[in-house]
Write a protein that binds this DNA or RNA. Structure first.
Length: 266
DNA sequence: AATATATGCAACCGCCTGACC
DNA sequence: GGGTCAGGCGGTTGCATATAT
């Protein structure tokens, strides 16, 4: 009855990921796709919790991640979305291609929050800090239209990209590409050398590494209930990695080679 | 140069929701 | 219908690095 626990806790490694672990995870996902995170550590030969693997992949190893600080447009977008959505970081992240909820959350807490406070704006309510009478009133207005003055924020006035209603929102991918040169030069140089190593041709092609039972992989997958089509469902990632074009078709529009493919030279 | 403090970020923790048995 | 689990999310922590004294 029920299911097996996600991980047995005992013998599960915690703390920072090593290059070797990253490599195993990347190799595994590139080969088999992301599915059933619970099974990933075992199949990939990792002594990690599936949850930890998922987090590592989504927040750090995914090839479509942008790196480096958020640019002004992105920051303004985060502020605007936060005013409407509150701390729903995943929803906010969904509007910023290549950014993760964790990254946005961290950036909010370390940069934007302070910036807003410095400007006299309450980062929670998006109201001016010196709210005269009833502080509760301000709290209740969290999800209403905030008194956000772009001029006050000293950010580009028309970094818009935000339609009047949340539903009609369209991601600012085009504008990102105009920032490419800047963000590439900034964030490109920020690309973690470890990431370069992990995504390097030699590194990835070294499939000798391995998976505990390479020969029985098919069997294990079918045991887990994966169809071979599911198994191949992430072949796009491999294609994606190899092709270098066609990024748009994956919804990664506006990403430069440097953003999504550290295999490039820099 | 050594130490203290601040900052930034990766990773963990705990809770919630939906799916499964 | 109720219990259990996986996956996802937001909050928090801990450590490495940067900056100040």
């Amino acid at each position: 009855m029920g299911r097996q626990p996600c991980c047995d806790k005992l013998g599960v490694k915690k703390g920072p990921w090593t290059a070797e672990e990253d490599k195993k995870l990347v190799n595994f996902i590139l080969t088999h796709g992301q599915c059933c995170w619970r099974a990933v550590p075992k199949l990939a030969g990792l002594r990690r919790c599936g949850k930890s693997c998922r987090l590592r992949w989504t927040n750090y190893l995914r090839p479509d991640l942008k790196r480096g600080l958020l640019n002004d447009d992105e920051e303004q977008l985060v502020i605007d979305l936060h005013a409407r959505l509150g701390n729903r970081w995943s929803k906010i992240a969904a509007r910023l291609p290549g950014r993760t909820d964790n990254e946005i959350k961290n950036h909010w807490n370390t940069h934007i929050k302070k910036k807003l406070i410095k400007m006299g704006i309450d980062p929670v309510t998006h109201e001016p800090l010196q709210k005269p009478d009833n502080p509760q009133e301000a709290t209740c207005q969290t999800n209403d239209q905030p008194n956000l003055d772009p001029k006050q924020l000293e950010l580009p006035k028309d970094c818009g990209h935000v339609s009047s209603t949340t539903d009609e929102f369209s991601p600012p991918t085009e504008n990102f590409s105009t920032d490419e040169s800047r963000s590439s030069s900034e964030s490109g140089s920020d690309v973690d050398p470890l990431i370069n190593l992990i995504w390097s041709e030699a590194f990835l092609n070294d499939l000798t590494w391995n998976f505990p039972c390479p020969d029985s992989r098919e069997l294990e997958y079918s045991e887990l209930g994966f169809s071979s089509s599911e198994e191949n469902s992430f072949s796009w990632l491999l294609d994606y990695q190899n092709s270098g074009d066609d990024h748009q078709s994956f919804g990664f529009g506006g990403f430069s080679e440097i953003d999504i493919n550290p295999l490039g030279k820099y």
